[in-house]
Design a protein around this nucleic acid. Structure first.
Lengths: 221, 221
DNA sequence: GTTTGACCAAATTTCGAATTTGGTCATAAG
DNA sequence: CTTATGACCAAATTCGAAATTTGGTCAAAC
């Protein structure tokens, strides 16, 4: 068998199986053998890709995370105005809602993620948070974000709001988040011209972030 | 012993004991005997006040809830400008933060409240939510709240935001909530005159609510 | 070189016995 | 009489050791 391509394909198949089972039965109840069987590989093969169970399931979530970021990059590339904070939040929120496992991650769903949750925050946060802060600084420097409070504080509030929206059931409409973010974090007037001006740099930031995440995903084995 | 007064006193003592143990050991691990011993009464005496364990611990939370509402009423009575939504949210948030058990309730802290949590929402919500909506309608009718969205939607968003703030660790400063609420829910200008005008009616609403809660608390036995 | 499942130590589950607990009520105290 | 109590019991919980399952490895098969 041609190794190079099939290898990545097989990894995807395993991740698909793991995702499916994770969502259906939760982390605690999903065994490596279940995953291997569903992916139609031997148990040992799973360990050819990830060094242990935890890493496998973290990779499932990391993959979703990468996908969501990729969607974001695509969207911004197609429409620079999407870099507006309220718009970007809305898009990201809607995309997370479409992925139950990511939502479980953001909403601290212990039932499905179990002991994976603490490890998760230690895995995704560092780089992401950094890129996110840089993005906000960029907006602030261009009158696209309120500047009467330090970005550090805005981040805290934003995370609280996002968490609240994602943990609510049913989750409020994305448009409501956009509206809330616009009023709570943006200046009264948001300049279209300046949005276009910052879009390229913002795009760069997100592309970097997605590249880092993808690298971490591949560095699985 | 003089029954009338001592009875209420004893109930308070039992609730104090229950609160202390609930906070320290959590609902699952706190037994009625523990509570009785700490309150210096026989186990049977506890059942002279509440019909079962669950009702006792719900009463603990209900009492905190009443106290917080009472503080709110006092504050508004002393300063009518406190009826401003952002200010009132800030006060209420700060007061809840001071009471770990209430915070546990709002933040869905399963560890300390366990199986009490679902019952709790069924116990506090109905009346409170109603009074809260009425309060918001009152504000909206007086240009003290944005009117471009139905109050029903604002409630959903507010609850999400509040939940997010209370569940965050560490919880953001109350001033940050006030600021967020002001921007997300209030019109650009909030008239001091109109605040004073609606304060009496708002006060009435909250006094009614606190009376209802207090009644439910006394209807314990 | 690649994949696998038999294998094993460690973790989890099982399940009946032992203990604890929620709730009652006959009795004691006043 | 009223009020408070703790012994009492069924039900729930915990315990513990045996049985089972699982994560992870690796010698053998391919």
């Amino acid at each position: 068998m041609p190794p190079a391509e099939d290898r990545a394909e097989r990894a995807e198949r395993i991740l698909d199986a793991a995702a499916e089972l994770l969502l259906r039965a939760g982390y605690r109840r999903t065994t490596i053998e279940d995953v291997a069987e569903r992916a139609d590989v031997g148990k040992g093969t799973v360990y050819l890709h990830w060094k242990n169970r935890e890493e496998l399931f973290l990779a499932v979530l990391l993959r979703d995370s990468v996908r969501v970021l990729e969607e974001l990059v695509t969207t911004i590339a197609a429409d620079p105005l999407s870099v507006r904070f309220s718009r970007l939040s809305e898009l990201q929120y809607a995309n997370v809602l479409k992925r139950p496992l990511l939502r479980a991650g953001y909403a601290d769903d212990t039932e499905t993620l179990g002991k994976l949750l603490p490890k998760l925050h230690g895995k995704l946060d560092p780089r992401h948070a950094e890129a996110f802060v840089e993005y906000l600084e960029l907006l602030a420097a261009n009158d696209l974000l309120r500047t009467d409070r330090p970005v550090r504080e805005l981040v805290v509030v934003f995370q609280a709001v996002l968490h609240g929206f994602l943990a609510a059931s049913p989750p409020p409409e994305p448009a409501l988040l956009a509206d809330t973010i616009a009023r709570a974090f943006e200046p009264l007037a948001v300049s279209t011209r300046q949005l276009r001006a910052v879009a390229p740099r913002a795009l760069e930031l997100f592309i970097e972030a997605v590249a880092l995440d993808r690298k971490q995903l591949e560095r699985a084995y």
